[in-house]
């Protein structure tokens, strides 16, 4: 390698420092009540890669940030209300609703979102919230599954997430979760598609930098599902993953696939310690 190459590399290596400076220092308090931890020391299992983890909220404009600070302004709350109706709606051959078994969502679902994806001992698998919801629909209610990234699913995930807002994300990565976590980590660092880019290229090495018109965040999922101003609906984590992989000119994985479940566990674990913020607002 020649001298010029080395100079350019030195220039490129200086960038993550600049990146660090570019996340803003605002504080997120929702409804003047819920104080969110949006920046915190990186969890031990990623401390070799990052010192601090940050919510995607810090990388959005003041106007977009403001929409998430009050439920009256947060466009996602309409969908939370819709899911509240679904919660007590009887469906399926067992003639039950979610409420038949879980009663008051505020009590039964408090803290649930913070620990998902989670190992399910009986099923012998890692379950995302969406998988658990669909399992309840199928095996408990005798009702049809919802589309993995569909509107009903996203809304129900949002309703369940609201019950954990402000609590620290705390997914387990050891014991029976470990092999899935390792698989997710492998996927996170794999450079896919014709552009040969990994999640880490954009969200670990370059957060804080602009990529064309987009201000790159750390790609955390503590805010999911998120309402996007761009498509005016709730978006699930797997739909976001799919879009990001597609943008590397790669064949994507399917939402709900074993690969994306593993990736979700891994990405969620990178945000351990950040507050559950969902449903958040992004551009």
């Amino acid at each position: 390698m020649n001298n010029k190459a080395i100079t350019a590399i030195a220039m490129a290596m200086a960038l993550p420092v600049a990146a660090y400076a570019e996340a803003d220092d605002d504080t997120l308090v929702v409804n003047e009540e819920i104080e969110m931890v949006t920046k915190t020391t990186a969890p031990g299992h990623i401390s070799d890669a990052l010192d601090e983890v940050m919510s995607g909220w810090h990388f959005r404009s003041d106007e977009t940030q403001a929409l998430q600070m009050d439920d009256f302004d947060n466009p996602a709350m309409v969908f939370v209300d819709q899911a509240m109706d679904t919660w007590s709606k009887v469906e399926g051959t067992a003639e039950k609703s979610c409420a038949s078994c879980h009663d008051d969502v505020e009590e039964s679902m408090a803290g649930v979102r913070a620990v998902y994806p989670k190992w399910n001992e009986d099923a012998g698998e890692i379950r995302t919230l969406a998988m658990q919801i669909n399992d309840c629909r199928e095996s408990q209610m005798g009702a049809d599954k919802w589309k993995y990234t569909g509107g009903k699913m996203a809304a129900m995930e949002a309703l369940i997430s609201v019950q954990s807002r402000g609590m620290p994300v705390n997914v387990a990565i050891d014991g029976p979760a470990q092999s899935t976590w390792e698989q997710g980590k492998e996927l996170y660092y794999t450079r896919t598609g014709q552009l040969e880019l990994s999640c880490a290229n954009c969200h670990e090495d370059n957060y804080g930098n602009m990529i064309r018109a987009d201000h790159l965040s750390q790609g955390q999922i503590n805010g999911f599902p998120v309402y996007r101003l761009k498509n005016t609906k709730l978006n699930t984590a797997h739909a976001r993953f799919k879009g990001c992989v597609r943008d590397t000119r790669a064949e994507t994985y399917k939402p709900g696939s074993a690969e994306f479940v593993a990736l979700e566990l891994y990405v969620a674990s990178r945000g351990n310690g950040l507050s559950v913020e969902a449903p958040s607002v992004r551009n």
Partner: peptide, 24 residues
């Protein structure tokens, strides 16, 4: 630049999960 993030613009194979442009 070994391992650079910059994509190769005149390379046609040896990719992981090669896609059909931006269709996914």
């Amino acid at each position: 630049f070994d391992g650079t993030m910059m994509p190769a613009f005149y390379k046609v194979d040896g990719f992981i999960r090669p896609g059909d442009a931006y269709t996914g």
